[in-house]
Simulated scan of single mutants.
Amino acid sequence: MTDNSAGLRIGTAPDSWGVWFPDDPKQVPWQRFLDEVVEAGYTWIELGPYGYLPTDPHQLEDELGSRGLKLSGGTVFTGFHKTEEERTRAWDQAVKVAGLASQLGAEHIVVIPDLWRSDATGENLEPRTLTDEQWKKLAAGHDWLGKALLEEYGVKQQFHSHADSHVGTAREVTRFLDETDPRYTNLCLDTGHYAYYGGDNLALIRERPERIGYLHLKQVDQTQLFDVLKNDVPFADAVAGGIMIEPPHGVPELGPIIEAAAAISPDIFAIVEQDMYGCDVDTPFPIARRTRDHIHGCTHMARQF
């Protein structure tokens, strides 16, 4: 399909190759990841967990440039609802991640909140809901981080609601938006995570268009979802069971979401991020290629560059 300058740039991420950690012998080697991204037909990628791709900016620039790849953003993890020390932890990450990503032209940092349940052990780490005081700390922390990222590195914070986190349901996401400053804190709307708790992605885009800064594209397998929720299955276990399914076999439908976001701004990135941690290294590539073909085939508002 011909690229449309009014459409969204479609990219992918290490997560779609099953990469959750900087170093894990079960994960696909980073060189193979980059090669397969190109072969699957993508131009834009995310940094993934810091340390998975080369952290030397010159080496990373060479590796991406030799393959015709570009960087859309990086990822930072936060827990601002806990203690003031969380600001130090967040900034230590930001210095590395935003420092590297911004040197390669990326303009976005996706920020993921700490989970109340461990994604490694399934253990409950803290209560599932926040107190009013914790909500205030959470919002203030993200506005502080977003302002600092913008002023120091010229990158925008895009908050990512997440399964097994304190900001996951539609009501929680709405409260988060109400308590944060749109100058410094907006959303990486992850279509799968939002749908995981029954959120209507199109309704959110329609109701809060000014807060949609970035997209992660994925689908949830509805045939599994209610069993997962009923039986309180940890998110990591649900991922291992295939809860985030290859499009177009799940929900939500991606074409209308891309079109709705493109109507807000063609500068919004739409990054395919199918949670596949624990998969065999040979599994991701054909899925990534089919997913790209599906997206570009289901809407005229998808472009490569």
Rank of each mutant, 00 (worst) to 15 (best):
V233K: 03
L100I: 11
Q274R: 08
D132L: 06
T83E: 05
L204R: 03
E46M: 13
H294C: 03
D267Y: 01
L215P: 07
R9P: 06
I109R: 01
C188G: 01
K147T: 00
G41R: 07
K156E: 11
Q219E: 15
T185C: 10
T283I: 09
S265M: 03
A240K: 13
D280N: 14
R183E: 15
V228H: 04
L34P: 05
T299L: 11
I295E: 00
V173A: 00
L71D: 08
P29Q: 03
E253A: 14
E61C: 07
I295Q: 01
W135G: 03
F21K: 10
R87L: 07
V220N: 06
Y184I: 06
V19M: 09
W17F: 14
E84A: 13
Y194S: 00
G192K: 00
R211P: 02
W116T: 04
Q158D: 04
L34W: 14
A262F: 00
A240N: 07
S265W: 01
L149F: 01
T75L: 11
A263I: 03
E179T: 07
L150K: 15
H160F: 05
A101H: 12
P127A: 08
I245S: 03
L53R: 03
E36Q: 15
Q27E: 15
I264F: 00
E151P: 00
G99H: 09
D280V: 11
D221R: 11
D282F: 05
Q134F: 14
E123L: 10
T12R: 06
G41V: 06
T12A: 09
F21H: 12
T185I: 09
T131P: 06
I45G: 01
F235K: 03
N231Q: 11
Y42T: 02
Q224H: 03
R289D: 13
P247I: 10
P247F: 07
I268G: 01
I243E: 04
V37C: 14
R67V: 12
Y277N: 10
N124R: 12
D164F: 04
D282R: 12
C298S: 15
R292P: 15
I245P: 02
L177Y: 04
T131H: 05
S165I: 01
H249F: 14
F285P: 15
G146V: 05
